[in-house]
Amino acid sequence: MPRVLLIEDDPAVRRGVQLALRHEGHEVFAAASGEEGLERFRFIRPEVVVLDLMLPGIAGLDVCRRIREQDQVPIIIVTARGDDVDVVVGLEAGADDYVVKPVRARVLEARIRAVLRRLGPPASTSARPRPETHGDLAVDRAGLTVTLRGEPVLLAPSELRLLLTLSASPGQVLSRQQLLEAVWEHSYHGDIRLVDACVKRLRGKLGEPGGEARYIHTVRGFGYRFVAPAADGSARTAGTAARSAGS
């Protein structure tokens, strides 16, 4: 039974979401503030965190950052303003997905199921006995681990699934919509901010500071492509496609 930590200060919303998630079979623990949420997180060790951004005391964004510093548990943020910068800032703080108030129980449950499935490899890839090597980057699909220059890279579920999806076909351009469907399982014409924010976080963890794209290249007007560096540091992709897009 997946454990869910719900951090929400509104009593009515908190009770409603608790009842709905328990009805779906989740074990739900609730907190009414950021401080209480962080305290309960340390003792509960939930499988998923549902986090309201507008909290008294420690703000939701700071809670998200603190949790992400110590754990890669899936985090779904709740915001009252879906078209606001709150969404982008929340995603860049480490959240895996978001829902907009008023929270619809079926939508939230679908997002929870999706982030839990994200802990496994994409359905389109098969487990391989040995890690793939892309320059300094090693991707172990069977063990779901990533190392960079021999050091482990801690990735949130959405970041790991995004890397697995992109690196499965080096040189192939995947649109934002394709990535949204493959990684977040959003089958509708969804919110590409999820993709762009996750790419930004992933690039940072792969040692691509300041927008320098070594592994994940932007193909303007289309989407993203994974580029496997050769031993000499140059890009290695199929054909001449790797040279057609800017970084």
Rank of each mutant, 00 (worst) to 15 (best):
G233C: 04
I75E: 04
P2Q: 03
G190T: 08
E8M: 07
I112N: 02
F43T: 15
I67Y: 08
L164N: 09
R45Y: 02
A213L: 02
V73W: 00
G90L: 05
G204R: 12
R66K: 15
R201I: 01
L21Y: 01
Q70W: 04
K200G: 10
R149C: 04
G82M: 07
S33R: 06
D62N: 13
L137W: 07
I58K: 10
Q72V: 15
V50G: 06
D140R: 10
A32I: 03
L19K: 15
L116W: 00
L51Q: 01
G82E: 04
F41E: 05
Q72Y: 03
K101G: 11
P229T: 09
H134I: 03
A156Q: 05
G221S: 09
L174F: 15
G60N: 07
E69L: 12
V49L: 07
S167D: 11
L162I: 12
R117Q: 13
L51A: 08
A30Y: 01
R111L: 05
P102T: 00
E185T: 13
E69G: 13
D96T: 12
L38D: 02
R66N: 11
R243E: 09
L116H: 00
D83L: 10
G25P: 05
G204K: 05
L5I: 10
W184P: 09
S187W: 05
V146N: 11
K200N: 12
R113Q: 15
L154N: 12
A114L: 05
A245H: 15
G94T: 03
V115H: 00
P170V: 00
I67H: 05
T240M: 10
R161Y: 00
A95K: 01
R104K: 15
S247Q: 11
V88K: 08
L144N: 15
A241C: 06
G221L: 02
E132N: 10
V89A: 13
L108E: 14
R68L: 09
L163E: 09
L206V: 09
